[in-house]
Amino acid sequence: MDVAAVQSQLIERINSGVLVVDQNCCLLYFNRFMESHSLLQASEVIGKTLFDIFPDAPQRWLQRKIQSVFMLNTPAFSSWEQRQFVFKMRHARPVTTSSEYMAQNITFIPICSDGQSEPDKVGIIVEDMTDVFFYQQKLKDTLKELEEVSRTDGLTKVSNRRYWEERFRIEFETAQRYEHDLSLIMFDLDKFKRINDEYGHQAGDLVLVKATELVQQILRKGDLLGRYGGEEFGIILPNTAEKGAFELAERIRSQFSLLTMQHDNRSINATMSMGICQFDSRFTRFEDMVTRADLALYQSKREGRNQVTIYQA
Rank of each mutant, 00 (worst) to 15 (best):
142 T>M: 12
142 T>Y: 15
142 T>V: 11
142 T>A: 14
142 T>E: 15
143 L>V: 15
143 L>F: 06
144 K>L: 13
145 E>Y: 11
145 E>G: 02
145 E>V: 05
145 E>H: 09
146 L>P: 05
146 L>A: 13
146 L>E: 13
146 L>Q: 13
146 L>I: 14
147 E>V: 02
147 E>C: 02
147 E>R: 11
147 E>P: 04
148 E>P: 00
148 E>K: 14
148 E>G: 00
148 E>I: 05
149 V>S: 04
149 V>M: 13
149 V>H: 09
149 V>G: 03
149 V>Q: 13
150 S>I: 09
150 S>F: 09
150 S>M: 08
150 S>E: 03
151 R>L: 15
151 R>H: 10
151 R>I: 15
152 T>E: 04
152 T>W: 03
152 T>N: 04
152 T>S: 07
153 D>K: 05
153 D>Q: 07
154 G>P: 06
154 G>S: 11
154 G>W: 06
154 G>A: 12
154 G>I: 08
155 L>G: 03
155 L>C: 01
155 L>V: 06
156 T>C: 01
156 T>R: 01
157 K>A: 09
157 K>I: 05
157 K>G: 04
158 V>G: 02
159 S>G: 02
160 N>Q: 08
160 N>I: 09
160 N>T: 07
161 R>T: 07
161 R>C: 08
162 R>Q: 12
162 R>L: 08
162 R>K: 11
162 R>N: 06
162 R>S: 06
163 Y>K: 09
164 W>C: 07
164 W>E: 05
164 W>T: 11
164 W>Q: 09
164 W>G: 14
165 E>K: 01
165 E>F: 05
165 E>C: 00
165 E>P: 00
165 E>W: 00
166 E>N: 12
166 E>Y: 08
166 E>V: 00
166 E>C: 00
166 E>A: 02
166 E>L: 04
167 R>C: 12
167 R>W: 11
168 F>P: 02
168 F>R: 03
168 F>W: 01
168 F>H: 04
169 R>M: 02
169 R>V: 01
169 R>K: 09
170 I>L: 14
170 I>H: 15
171 E>G: 00
171 E>D: 08
